[in-house]
Write a protein that binds this DNA or RNA. Structure first.
Lengths: 258, 258
DNA sequence: TAGTGGTCTAGACCACTTA
DNA sequence: AAGTGGTCTAGACCACTAA
C-alpha cells in the first residue's frame, strides 16, 4: 500500500487530499474490489491527522459509493458487478421465437451466467399506479409475478409484472414456469400480438427493502424502469416494474428523428 | 419553530434523534421549501449537544437530499424541482420547425420556466469516448458546447455537446447563440438531415464537481444520458453528454415490438 | 462586524468482529 | 483481548455572507 502525503500549504483541505489519494489507489486498481482500506488509525498515523479528518476522507468516498464500511471489520472497496448493456431491441420477437426470455437472451450476449430466484405468482387487486397504466378498473384482478434476477450469482434486478386477469388466468402466465419465450410468448399465444412498448426510467436511492433485496451498500443508487407492453389493438397487456442496481446497467435506446 | 427534545436514555443516538426531529418538521410542512433550519449554534443550545453532534444530524439530512447548506448563510430546506417528463419525441422536427430547442420546447409543456446559463463554446481535441462515438480521428478538432439548464431558477441539468469541426466550423454552431431551433436546426442547415438518435442511460452518485454544478445534496444520484445524433448517411454528427439531477426527471421511451 | 457553515485537533466511551 | 468503526465532547481557527 503506497499512500501519498498531504500538502499542508495547499488550499485543498487535508481530508479531501486524503480522499483524493485513496480514490486514486482505487481508480488505478492498486486497491481492488473487496480489498480493505487502511484503518482510521493507520490513516491518522500515516498522514499525521486527527481521527475526524481521516473519517471525513472516508465519508467522502462512501458518499461516492466507492467504498463500504463494516462496523468492527473495516472499510472495503465496493465489489462491482458486471455491467450489462440493455438494448431496446431485447424484446424483439426473434428472441422469443428462439424460446428465450429477454433477461436470459440478453445475458448470454454479455457472457454472464444469468439466474432467477424468489419467483412468486399471486393474484391481487392492482394499486392505483398499475390500474392507470393497464387501464383496468380497481376491482379487476391482475396476475402479479415477481422475481429476482442474478448475474454470476450477484443479485442485480428485481421485477414485478402485472397482467390483466382476463388475459392470464388459466394459462401458463399464472404458473411458476411460463415455458419457452417467457411471459411475452404466452401473451402472444393468447391472441395479443405485441405491437410496442413504453419504458419510463427514473433513478433514486433505494429503500431499505430494495437495499436488502439487491444487497446494495449505502450510497448505491437504483434505476427504476417501468415498462408497459401494448398489443395491436392498443391495449396495455402487461406492466413490468423493475428495480435495477444502477452500477450494473447501461440502458440503450434508439429512436427516429422524425 | 417547535423543536422537540432528545431522550438520553434511548438507544437511538442523539444526532439521529435530532435528525428525526428536523425531518419531521420538513415532512409535516412546518418547515417549507427554501426555509432556513435552526443554525448549528441554536441546535447545540436547544438540545444541549456538542457542535459535531448537531452537524452530524444536519449531515444526515443533507445525505438524504432534504436540505442544502450554504456557506455563511445557513441550512435550508431543499427547493424541490418540478419533475420533468422527457419523451423520446422531444427532438422531433416539428419542434425545431417552430424555432424551439428541445429543452425549451419540452419545458413549456410542463409549465416550468426554463433558462440556460454557463454557456461555453470552445474547440478542442476529443477524448477517447467522444472519438469512438463520433468516429473521428484523435487529431480532428471538435466543437465543444457546454451549458447548464435551470428550471424555475434551479439547476437541473448540465450538457456538453461535441460536433465535428468540419460540420460546425464557421457556422452558428461555433457561436454562443445558435439561433432558432438550436444546434440541431443548424446541423440540418449544414446539409446533415437527422435520421435517428441513440441514448445511453446510466445512473450513479455525482462527482464533487457535479454536486456543485447541480447544487445536489450529498446523496442525490444523477442520471447520465449520452445521446448520439446520426444523419441520413449514417454519420454521427453530434454527441451530447448530459448529467441530470435524478429526482427532477422521468425519461420516457417508446419502441416497437418488431 | 456578527453570524453562519467548513474544517481541524485531541481526547473519550461504546458496539461490533475476529481470533 | 485486540482491532475496527460509530458516536460524542469541547474547544479552535478559517471562509463566506449580510447588514
Amino acid at each position: 500500500m503506497q499512500l501519498g502525503t498531504i500538502d499542508r500549504t495547499s488550499d485543498r483541505p487535508p481530508s479531501k487530499q486524503i480522499a483524493d489519494d485513496l480514490r486514486g489507489l482505487i481508480q488505478s486498481s492498486r486497491l481492488v474490489a473487496g480489498e480493505q482500506l487502511p484503518s482510521e488509525a493507520k490513516l491518522m498515523d500515516h498522514y499525521g491527522v486527527a481521527r475526524m479528518t481521516a473519517r471525513q476522507a472516508l465519508q467522502e468516498l462512501k458518499s461516492e459509493g466507492l467504498v463500504v464500511s463494516e462496523h468492527g471489520r473495516g472499510v472495503f472497496v465496493r465489489r462491482t458487478v458486471p455491467v450489462r448493456r440493455l438494448a431496446s431491441d431485447r424484446f424483439a420477437r426473434r428472441y422469443r421465437d428462439q424460446g428465450k426470455a429477454a433477461f436470459l437472451a440478453e445475458a448470454e450476449k454479455s457472457g454472464a451466467t444469468p439466474s432467477v430466484d424468489s419467483i412468486q405468482v399471486t393474484e391481487d387487486y392492482p394499486d392505483v399506479e398499475v390500474q392507470q397504466r393497464l387501464r383496468v378498473p380497481e376491482d379487476e384482478i391482475v396476475i402479479v409475478r415477481s422475481r429476482r434476477y442474478l448475474s454470476d450469482g450477484i443479485p442485480v434486478e428485481t421485477a414485478v409484472s402485472y397482467i390483466p386477469g382476463d388475459i392470464g388466468k388459466g394459462t401458463k402466465i399464472a404458473e411458476m414456469d411460463t415455458g419457452p419465450g417467457g411471459i411475452y410468448a404466452r401473451i402472444e399465444d393468447a391472441g395479443h400480438t405485441l405491437e410496442h412498448f413504453t419504458e419510463e426510467v427514473t433513478a433514486r436511492m433505494p429503500t431499505e427493502r430494495e437495499r436488502d433485496q439487491l444487497q446494495l451498500g449505502t450510497s448505491v443508487p437504483i434505476m427504476r424502469v417501468v415498462r408497459t407492453a401494448y398489443d395491436f389493438q392498443g391495449r396495455a397487456v402487461e406492466v413490468c416494474d423493475t428495480i435495477k442496481a444502477a452500477p450494473a446497467f447501461v440502458l440503450e435506446y434508439d429512436f427516429p428523428a422524425r
